[in-house]
């Protein structure tokens, strides 16, 4: 079913909307959640929350891209759940490793918190300046939280190559954020 038809179902308040969304984007949402939360129960709860949020926000929201919209909601819920769970339980996982990797590209500054929108705009600008492959690899790692091995397989690259692309991109991001006067 086309996205516009699914969105129309939400506007009609038809329960088929959620069924069709799950049918079309269930696997996609699952990939995002499982990249962040390893526990299947947490992941399932997070997915249910996300579908509920989708149901409550459409309408009035009419997303331009349903895939990106649901992706954002799912990722946001999963990151919040991760924070909640991680406050209690600490361990080594993909998100923790991704966070550790990102730590090195954050400028060291004691300035006040930067406006969310400015930072977002800055990151968007940075991503658009990247070569397409580097951008996709960066987002696969830090948006979809995909493991290095999986990114390498999907792009027909060696794992070491992916690691090196990510390192280079993080260094570029650090320089870019510093140049733009961003502090976190």
């Amino acid at each position: 079913m086309e996205d516009t038809q699914i969105i129309e179902l939400y506007f009609q308040r038809s329960e088929d909307a959620v069924i069709e969304t799950k049918k079309k984007y269930g696997a996609y949402c699952n990939t995002i959640v499982c990249g962040i939360l390893k526990n299947t129960e947490d992941a399932e709860e997070c997915l249910n929350d996300a579908y509920l949020k989708l149901w409550k926000t459409i309408p009035p929201v009419k997303p331009h891209s349903l895939k990106a919209y649901i992706g954002r909601i799912v990722r946001n819920s999963a990151l919040s759940a991760y924070e909640r769970i991680h406050a209690v339980k600490r361990g080594s996982d993909t998100v923790k490793v991704a966070l550790d990797e990102l730590a090195e590209c954050i400028p060291d500054s004691s300035c006040d918190m930067t406006e969310e929108l400015e930072l977002q705009e800055c990151l968007e600008g940075f991503l658009r300046r990247l070569p397409k492959t580097d951008r996709i690899i960066f987002l696969r790692r830090y948006w979809y939280m995909s493991p290095i091995k999986e990114i390498a397989e999907d792009h027909g690259l060696k794992e070491t190559k992916v690691v090196s692309v990510l390192r280079r991109t993080r260094n570029r991001l650090k320089r870019y954020l510093e140049r733009e006067g961003m502090s976190l």
């Binding site: 696997a27 990106a68 990151l79 990102l102 968007e124 996709i136 696969r140 995909s146 999907d154």
Partner: peptide, 27 residues
């Protein structure tokens, strides 16, 4: 701080999210 970057990344444009989607055809 790192979590803030991850969360801020949530606001990037739709086309960038779709472009990097894991369910896109594999290269």
């Amino acid at each position: 701080k790192q979590m803030r970057i991850l969360k801020t990344l949530n606001g990037i444009s739709d086309d960038l999210i779709e472009e990097a989607s894991p369910d896109n055809p594999k290269k």
